Simulated scan of single mutants.
Amino acid sequence: MEDRFKKASFATWLGIIANAVLAVMKGITGWLSGSRALIADAAHSASDVVGSIAVLAGLKTAQKPPDKDHPYGHGKAENIATIIVAILLVVVGIEIAISSAGAFFGGVTRAPGMMALVVIIFSLIVKECLYHYKYRLAKKINSSALMAEAWHHRSDSISSMAALVGIGGAMAGQASGLPILFYLDPLAGIVVSLLVIRVGIKLAKESSQIMLEQVLSDEETKPMAEAVQKVDGVIRVDELLARTHGHYMIVDIKVSVEPSITVEDGHTISKQVKKCLTKEFQSIQNVFVHINPYRTDDDRKVVDINDQKTIQERA
């Protein structure tokens, strides 16, 4: 757990420093060159800094062990951080759209200079490197907050690409004597805003589903049911519900056993079920097992591990 936090923390601090430097570079260059697209991109990088700080706080909270008030742990702190990042993306996207749209009414009299082009290319390279680094790390340590950060970097790359096209087009317009092409720069700013808003909504939707206790699909839990079915004493898996808590999962499972066994035997089977799941699936942190007496005439909802569906079994 500690090693996981150190890796995620290092990656987050790396992003904070890189984004702070890029935000200042793009902001100053955008202001001096009059590039709406570059200023919009600077705002995007600045939002990354704020988002990364929220992620850092979420990661630190998520590593805390379960306590009396939080028996399931603090894993969802990562999802809260993800939602904060998503909200920031949407807000920044709207601000970028308003600023860029205003350029069409105020008029664009010149194209950005060469420095704007150099800065945006540099930003594109840095952001892509950060995206690939954090994406791989997030997959390795199963961190939704770090994954959100990775996609935040990728959205920055896409917005930088749009800004690159806009700035390059505006410069081409100045070189060819076609001032109409100057408007490609603010147009790129609007495209950037739409991309940023889209990523923000997607991240917010995914994390909100986890916060609302959405369980994994039957297909995702099928391997778990198959593993439990092999435990000695388990006759049938009646129900298996798995939900995500940040980087780990909590499982609630009901299994049927021989009705004539002792309470102690039932307890032993319960412990074996829990041991089986936590050993075979590293992402599972805790398992709550309910023992049912097996009845051949039961009319109950059970897990069918053969066709991956939850069906009604009628003996």
Rank of each mutant, 00 (worst) to 15 (best):
residue 6 K to N: 15
residue 7 K to V: 10
residue 8 A to T: 11
residue 9 S to R: 13
residue 23 A to K: 03
residue 25 M to R: 00
residue 26 K to S: 04
residue 29 T to S: 12
residue 48 D to G: 04
residue 52 S to W: 04
residue 58 G to M: 06
residue 61 T to K: 15
residue 68 K to S: 13
residue 69 D to H: 13
residue 72 Y to T: 08
residue 73 G to I: 04
residue 74 H to N: 07
residue 84 I to R: 03
residue 85 V to Y: 07
residue 89 L to V: 02
residue 90 V to H: 06
residue 92 V to N: 04
residue 98 I to A: 12
residue 100 S to H: 00
residue 105 F to V: 14
residue 110 R to I: 05
residue 119 V to K: 11
residue 126 V to K: 05
residue 128 E to A: 05
residue 128 E to T: 03
residue 128 E to F: 07
residue 132 H to K: 11
residue 138 A to P: 02
residue 139 K to D: 13
residue 146 L to W: 02
residue 150 A to C: 07
residue 154 R to V: 01
residue 157 S to M: 05
residue 158 I to N: 00
residue 158 I to K: 01
residue 164 L to K: 03
residue 176 S to D: 00
residue 176 S to Q: 09
residue 177 G to K: 09
residue 194 L to P: 02
residue 204 A to I: 07
residue 208 S to D: 05
residue 214 Q to F: 03
residue 219 E to Y: 05
residue 236 R to I: 00
residue 240 L to M: 15
residue 240 L to A: 13
residue 248 Y to C: 12
residue 249 M to S: 12
residue 253 I to Y: 01
residue 258 E to R: 10
residue 260 S to R: 08
residue 261 I to D: 08
residue 262 T to C: 06
residue 267 H to Y: 15
residue 268 T to S: 08
residue 271 K to V: 04
residue 272 Q to R: 15
residue 286 N to P: 04
residue 288 F to Q: 08
residue 288 F to I: 15
residue 291 I to D: 02
residue 297 D to R: 07
residue 298 D to W: 07
residue 298 D to S: 12
residue 299 D to Y: 05
residue 300 R to Q: 10
residue 304 D to P: 04
residue 308 Q to H: 12
residue 309 K to P: 03
residue 312 Q to P: 00
residue 314 R to D: 09
